[in-house]
C-alpha cells in the first residue's frame, strides 16, 4: 500500500519536469554570458541590457501593451454585458449561445487567423492595431464571458431583490450591488484576457500589418536571423509576465471570491 503514494509523487515530479524544464532552461540561458550555444560561461545581465536598448524591442513591447489593454477593455465591456444578459435569458436560447461562445476556444487558432484575415480583406479593413485587437477579442471575449457567468451563477438573486426593495432602480442595482459582487471575476477575467492577448502569436501573425509588430512576432522574426541569447531574455520576460498575470488572476479570484461564494450564515 505504502509504495503507491511514492510512485505517484515521482510521477507528478516527472510531469512537472516535463512541463517546466524547457522553460527553466530558457530562463537560465538568458543569464548566460556566452555569445552562442548552450555552454555556460558565467552569469550576466547583458542580454537584458541589450534588449532594453533595442528600439525595435521597445516598440514591440509598447505595441503589445496597447493591443492587450485595448482588447481586454473591449472584452470586459462586451463580456460583462453579455454575461448579465444571458443570466436573464432562459431555456434553449442560453444553451445555444453557450455553445456558440465556447466554439472560438476550440477552433484551431490557425483557422481562426486565416478566417479573420479573409474577412478583414473582404471588408477592406487595413491590417494593423485595430485588426489585431479585434482578433484577440475573438478568443478573450468568450474567456471573459465564461469566467463572469460562472461567478454570476453563484450570486444569490436575493441580493438584487434586497437592493430593489431598499429603493435602488435597475441601474443602481447594477452599479451598487451586481458589479461590486462581480469584481473578483471581472479582475480575474481582465488579467487572463490581458495575458492571452500578450502571448498570442498565430492570430496576430495573420492579422498584423506594418508597424504593429507585437512581442511574440518580434521573437519569431529574431529567430529567423539566428538564435541569440537576446531572444532567451525576451522569452524569459514574456514567460514571467504571463505567469504573473495568470497567477494574479487565480489568486485574486480565490481570495476575494470567497465572500461571494460563502452564503451568509
Amino acid at each position: 500500500m505504502t509504495r503507491f503514494p511514492t510512485m505517484f509523487i515521482l510521477n507528478s515530479v516527472a510531469v512537472l519536469c516535463f512541463l517546466y524544464l524547457p522553460v527553466a532552461v530558457l530562463i537560465v540561458l538568458s543569464f548566460n554570458d556566452s555569445q552562442m550555444g548552450v555552454t555556460w560561461q558565467g552569469f550576466s545581465l547583458r542580454w537584458y541590457d541589450k534588449l532594453f536598448h533595442n528600439p525595435a524591442f521597445l516598440d514591440a513591447m509598447i505595441n503589445s501593451l496597447i493591443i492587450a489593454l485595448a482588447s481586454t477593455g473591449m472584452s470586459l465591456l462586451l463580456g460583462v454585458g453579455t454575461a448579465i444578459g444571458m443570466e436573464r435569458l432562459r431555456g434553449r436560447a442560453v444553451s445555444f449561445i453557450n455553445m456558440g461562445l465556447v466554439l472560438p476556444l476550440v477552433i484551431p487558432e490557425i483557422l481562426l487567423g486565416v478566417a479573420l484575415l479573409m474577412m478583414f480583406v473582404l471588408i477592406r479593413m487595413p491590417l494593423g492595431f485595430l485588426t489585431i485587437m479585434l482578433g484577440h477579442g475573438v478568443f478573450s471575449l468568450p474567456l471573459t464571458i465564461v469566467i463572469i457567468r460562472a461567478r454570476l451563477r453563484k450570486l444569490d438573486p436575493t441580493w438584487e431583490d434586497a437592493a430593489r426593495d431598499l429603493g435602488a432602480d435597475s441601474w443602481r442595482v447594477l452599479t451598487h450591488v451586481t458589479l461590486p459582487l462581480l469584481k473578483p471575476a471581472i479582475v480575474g477575467a481582465a488579467l487572463l484576457a490581458f495575458t492571452v492577448s500578450l502571448d498570442d502569436f498565430v492570430v496576430t501573425f495573420f492579422v498584423a500589418g506594418p508597424g504593429s509588430t507585437t512581442l511574440p512576432l518580434k521573437v519569431f522574426s529574431m529567430i529567423k536571423t539566428g538564435m541569440t541569447p537576446e531572444i532567451n531574455a525576451l522569452s524569459a520576460l514574456l514567460v514571467l509576465v504571463s505567469i504573473l498575470g495568470v497567477g494574479c488572476s487565480w489568486c485574486y479570484q480565490q481570495r476575494v471570491g470567497r465572500y461571494a461564494e460563502k452564503r451568509l450564515l
Partner: peptide
C-alpha cells in the same frame, strides 16, 4: 416597482450585502 413602495422586506437569509460594512448595509 419595489423601489417606489413605502415597504421594506427582511429576507429569510437576510441577504446582507457582503461587500459592504454593517454601516453601509444599513445606510443603503
Amino acid at each position: 416597482p419595489p423601489d417606489q413602495r413605502p415597504v421594506n422586506l427582511v429576507f429569510q437569509h437576510y441577504a446582507l450585502f457582503p461587500h459592504l460594512s454593517v454601516y453601509d448595509n444599513v445606510a443603503f
